[in-house]
Simulated assay, not measured.
Amino acid sequence: MGARRCDPSGPPDIDDDRDGCNTRQEVVKAEAVVAPVQGANCALTGGEWYSPYDDRLFDGPRGLDIDHLVSVPATI
């Protein structure tokens, strides 16, 4: 069984709660230390995120990489 990943060049990921935001956008919103503004089609602007891996803050969601901290098989 392979992992299902969000592919930015392919179709959007799942929108479980039907709020217009895919899985990546939901994670980006949840991990913000300063919440982004959510526009039409879940376009996110502003916001701030902290990276404990390199001890720095990121402004805006564009430069963020979302990845698993726990392997998918471990969650099953």
Rank of each mutant, 00 (worst) to 15 (best):
residue 60 G to L: 06
residue 15 D to Y: 03
residue 9 S to N: 09
residue 28 V to M: 10
residue 4 R to A: 13
residue 59 D to R: 12
residue 55 D to T: 07
residue 51 S to I: 02
residue 56 R to V: 09
residue 24 R to G: 00
residue 19 D to M: 05
residue 49 W to T: 09
residue 55 D to Q: 11
residue 34 V to S: 04
residue 45 T to H: 03
residue 35 A to P: 03
residue 28 V to S: 02
residue 59 D to F: 07
residue 44 L to V: 01
residue 8 P to L: 04
residue 51 S to Q: 07
residue 58 F to H: 13
residue 42 C to A: 11
residue 62 R to W: 03
residue 69 L to F: 13
residue 48 E to K: 13
residue 26 E to Y: 09
residue 69 L to E: 15
residue 45 T to K: 07
residue 14 I to Y: 04
residue 4 R to C: 10
residue 72 V to F: 14
residue 56 R to E: 12
residue 54 D to I: 04
residue 42 C to S: 10
residue 8 P to K: 08
residue 34 V to W: 08
residue 18 R to D: 15
residue 15 D to G: 03
residue 67 D to T: 11
residue 25 Q to C: 05
residue 76 I to P: 00
residue 59 D to E: 11
residue 68 H to P: 01
residue 70 V to W: 08
residue 19 D to A: 08
residue 66 I to G: 00
residue 11 P to T: 12
residue 38 Q to W: 01
residue 50 Y to D: 08
residue 65 D to E: 14
residue 21 C to T: 06
residue 62 R to M: 05
residue 67 D to Y: 13
residue 53 Y to C: 05
residue 37 V to C: 00
residue 22 N to Y: 12
residue 55 D to F: 08
residue 29 K to D: 00
residue 3 A to M: 10
residue 28 V to D: 04
residue 55 D to G: 00
residue 19 D to Q: 03
residue 16 D to F: 05
residue 8 P to N: 07
residue 41 N to S: 13
residue 59 D to S: 14
residue 66 I to L: 08
residue 70 V to Y: 03
residue 19 D to E: 08
residue 52 P to N: 14
residue 14 I to T: 15
residue 20 G to E: 06
residue 11 P to C: 02
residue 39 G to R: 04
residue 36 P to M: 13
residue 7 D to P: 02
residue 29 K to G: 00
residue 51 S to N: 15
residue 66 I to D: 05
residue 21 C to S: 05
residue 57 L to A: 06
residue 58 F to S: 08
residue 7 D to F: 06
residue 74 A to V: 02
residue 44 L to E: 06
residue 25 Q to W: 03
residue 64 L to F: 06
residue 41 N to F: 11
residue 25 Q to L: 12
residue 35 A to M: 08
residue 62 R to N: 14
residue 15 D to R: 00
residue 61 P to W: 01
residue 25 Q to R: 09
residue 40 A to Q: 05
residue 62 R to C: 08
residue 6 C to Q: 11
residue 7 D to G: 03
residue 10 G to P: 04
residue 12 P to F: 11
residue 60 G to W: 00
residue 48 E to M: 11
residue 75 T to C: 01
residue 69 L to G: 09
residue 16 D to L: 09
residue 59 D to T: 14
residue 58 F to N: 00
residue 29 K to E: 15
residue 39 G to P: 08
residue 2 G to E: 14
residue 47 G to L: 01
residue 70 V to M: 09
residue 3 A to Q: 14
residue 9 S to A: 14
residue 76 I to M: 08
residue 20 G to R: 03
residue 24 R to L: 05
residue 76 I to Q: 15
residue 6 C to D: 09
residue 26 E to N: 13
residue 6 C to W: 08
residue 53 Y to S: 15
residue 22 N to S: 06
residue 3 A to K: 12
residue 66 I to S: 07
residue 44 L to W: 01
residue 13 D to K: 00
residue 3 A to E: 14
residue 43 A to S: 13
residue 37 V to W: 01
residue 12 P to L: 09
residue 76 I to N: 12
residue 8 P to G: 10
residue 51 S to E: 06
residue 66 I to R: 12
residue 12 P to N: 07
residue 67 D to W: 11
residue 61 P to H: 07
residue 12 P to H: 09
residue 3 A to I: 12
residue 61 P to R: 02
residue 11 P to Y: 06
residue 51 S to H: 09
residue 1 M to R: 14
residue 44 L to H: 04
residue 12 P to W: 03
